[in-house]
């Protein structure tokens, strides 16, 4: 276990030394300041009621959360896709692995380091953004902590997929494949929403399949649900077919069986990554 922690520390240190954390921090602060300023304009609109401000703020919060989840998903893919592959290509792994360290310890150390970075970024950026929104509009979503947890989980899922691909494919190929899966899952989520509204089993099955295969969009919808105030939720439900295909709406919280599937999916994926890496000739 100590060697896993050593590699995790090394992964975080590398992100810091390569100025990844600094760049993310600066850009995130800029984005939060700009979005908070934008939110602060809502109450100043002529003739707007507090209920309208609240409704608009809730929808904009979901959009901002989507932006952050996208940054997190794409960012974690770009960092994870080269993590094993580039160490092999460059030769760094050839010096480390003859030491008394299992390949699984190297892989899990990288995963742990990246998962901590993803969680830390989701928590810090999310909390700062929520504070900005609250200061600007006095609005807070019903359960921001749960929403941030789902956003972080989405990033960890995609990062883990990129890490698996990194054990066999070049950084570029692994990264592109992970991103294709991410966007296909997103489209699959929209298809599911349309299928549910129109009660079309074929479209529903396609959507459910994509959500099971790559759970990123499922987790995103888990986050959305906890960002929706009850009155907004009731209005959207009442809209019926008019809300069909809205990728920024979640009717229900994620069922526990789905969360159990995501955990099993993650465990299975990591087991596959370890199996793949252990059998690779370097």
């Amino acid at each position: 276990m100590s060697r896993v922690l050593t590699i995790a520390r090394l992964t975080i240190l590398e992100a810091s030394r390569r100025k990844l954390l600094l760049a993310l921090a600066v850009l995130t602060v800029v984005v939060i300041v700009l979005t908070s300023w934008g939110f602060s304009r809502l109450p100043t609109v002529k003739g707007v009621t507090p209920a309208e401000v609240r409704g608009a703020a809730s929808q904009l919060t979901i959009l901002v959360a989507f932006m952050f989840s996208g940054v997190l998903a794409l960012g974690s893919t770009l960092v994870a896709a080269p993590s094993i592959a580039s160490d092999i290509e460059s030769g760094i792994a050839l010096a480390i692995l003859p030491r008394p360290i299992r390949r699984s310890e190297l892989l899990m150390g990288k995963w742990l380091g990246l998962a901590l970075l993803v969680t830390l970024y989701a928590a810090l950026s999310g909390v700062l953004e929520m504070i900005g929104i609250w200061l600007a509009t006095s609005y807070l979503p019903p359960n921001p902590a749960a929403a941030l947890a789902f956003v972080a989980a989405e990033g960890i899922v995609l990062m883990s997929l990129a890490l698996l691909l990194s054990t066999r494919l070049s950084p570029m190929t692994g990264g592109v494949i992970a991103l294709v899966f991410f966007f296909v899952a997103w489209i699959g989520g929209i298809a599911l929403a349309i299928g549910q509204v129109f009660a079309n089993d074929t479209i529903i099955n396609i959507g459910v399949g994509s959500r099971l295969l790559i759970p990123t969009d499922g987790l995103w919808h888990g986050a959305i649900f906890y960002l929706e105030p009850s009155d907004v939720l009731a209005l959207a439900r009442a809209a019926g077919r008019a809300r069909a295909g809205n990728p920024f709406f979640a009717d229900q919280p994620l069922p526990l069986t789905y969360l159990a599937w995501v955990v099993a999916w993650l465990v299975g994926l990591l087991a596959l990554a370890n199996w793949s890496f252990a059998r690779r000739d370097l």
Binding site: T6, E14, I92, A95
Partner: peptide
């Protein structure tokens, strides 16, 4: 072991690279 394709973490100092290998070797 010195590999034919030798490469060490460019973002680390030489002393840190050696420290890492001390740590990994237990």
């Amino acid at each position: 072991y010195l590999p034919e394709l030798f490469r060490y973490q460019g973002w680390m100092k030489a002393r840190e690279v050696l420290g890492l290998h001390c740590e990994l070797s237990g």
